[in-house]
């Protein structure tokens, strides 16, 4: 298994590496052209801005997921975690309105709480997988159920809504713009750049790749496996918290429906972007492109009535599979060496 991953890359040569890098972007470009042909409104400034802004939640979460997956883990709890953190944030901020009033300070307490909860939730996932020696799939499946139930319980099965005046104050964090760039897009860009540096230019990033390739080899190389793996979950938790900080001002509410399926969208974005699901190879840039692609598919389907609504899921499925197939470059390899796969 180990030999395969390490030897497969040099063997695949220049072509495949190009496709790993440019494949997701090419697929996105093709999708955009397709969208424009179906409806020229696709290319309007407002629509492009909508797509990028919407991509921010999944994009930010997926950057965190890139670390977890690169290091050989998986986190299924992110969607529920986002819902739970949003819910608690809203409740606490509503409670503080009486003592602290409708002020920036109230919002900052909410934001701080969100960061704290995100880090703690990530730490819990990390420690249970590393110290607790339980498979990440099971740990995060468990926490996924726990957070989802907790937010349903907190909301009495209904919806938690942020105090109206507080929301007006908080609104610019989603709807505002800095130098014509919507704030959520800016946040995604910053998170992506920080993530890229962390994964590609630091010892921590190299350790993530090493652990994902082979835990035992990494252990012999004196990599602190438990610490690095736990940290990837903490990063994931922080990314989820950041996503909730820009999500809450959008509709000012959280319910049991918040963040449903976000975990799968995040994982899909990561894989479309070229990261390997079993770990050992991660691409932040690709992840961001993957997240934008997923949003774009939904957007194009809304802009046309050519395809029956009932088939939306099927179209999404086909595009995701084709995108990853193109990116893996299997079709090229077969052309060169007959039985390449």
């Amino acid at each position: 298994m180990t030999d395969q991953t390490t030897s497969a890359r040099p063997a695949s040569g220049g072509f495949s590496i190009d496709f790993k890098a440019w494949g997701p972007l090419l697929a996105l470009a093709a999708l955009c052209i397709f969208g424009f042909i179906l409806n020229p409104a696709f290319a309007s400034e407002g629509n492009i801005s909508n797509i990028l802004t919407r991509s921010a939640f999944i994009g930010v979460i997926a950057v965190g997921a890139t670390f977890v997956i690169t290091a050989g883990g998986i986190d299924l709890s992110v969607g529920s975690m986002a819902a739970f953190i949003s819910g608690v944030m809203i409740m606490v901020m509503n409670g503080l309105v009486e003592t602290m009033g409708v002020s920036v300070a109230t919002i900052l307490v909410g934001v701080g709480l969100s960061v704290f909860l995100g880090a703690m939730a990530g730490l819990a996932n990390g420690l249970l997988t590393t110290r607790g020696k339980i498979e990440a799939f099971i740990v995060t499946l468990g926490t996924m159920g726990i957070y989802r139930s907790l937010v349903t319980y907190l909301a009495d099965g209904g919806t938690l809504s942020l105090n109206f005046d507080l929301r007006s104050l908080y609104r610019p964090v989603y709807y505002g713009e800095v130098l014509f760039v919507p704030v959520p897009v800016l946040v995604l860009a910053i998170v992506a750049i920080l993530g890229w540096v962390l994964l590609n230019r630091t010892a921590f990033g190299r350790h993530c790749v090493a652990i994902g390739s082979s835990e035992s080899v990494a252990r012999y190389s004196a990599v602190k496996i438990n610490r690095v793996k736990t940290l990837t979950y903490v990063i994931q938790g922080l990314c989820v918290s950041l996503a909730t900080i820009i999500y809450v001002p959008r509709l000012g509410s959280a319910s049991s429906q918040t963040g449903v399926m976000w975990e799968l969208e995040a994982i899909a974005a990561v894989i479309i972007g070229g990261t390997v699901l079993k770990g050992g190879y991660g691409r932040i840039g690709g992840t961001v492109v993957g997240a934008i692609m997923l949003t774009t598919i939904g957007n194009i389907l809304n802009l046309t009535d050519l395809i029956s609504n009932y088939l939306n899921g099927a179209v999404q499925g086909v595009i995701i599979i084709v995108a990853v197939w193109l990116q893996r470059g299997q079709w090229k390899r077969r052309g060169r060496s007959g039985d390449g796969g």
């Binding site: 909508n50 509709l251 939306n312």
Partner: peptide, 23 residues
Amino acid sequence: LDMKHANWNRDDGFTVMQDFLSR
């Protein structure tokens, strides 16, 4: 003009309507 599923969900209502408005 068109009908789309928003799944009795706030977030979907928001995105579907955004797209209707650009269209």
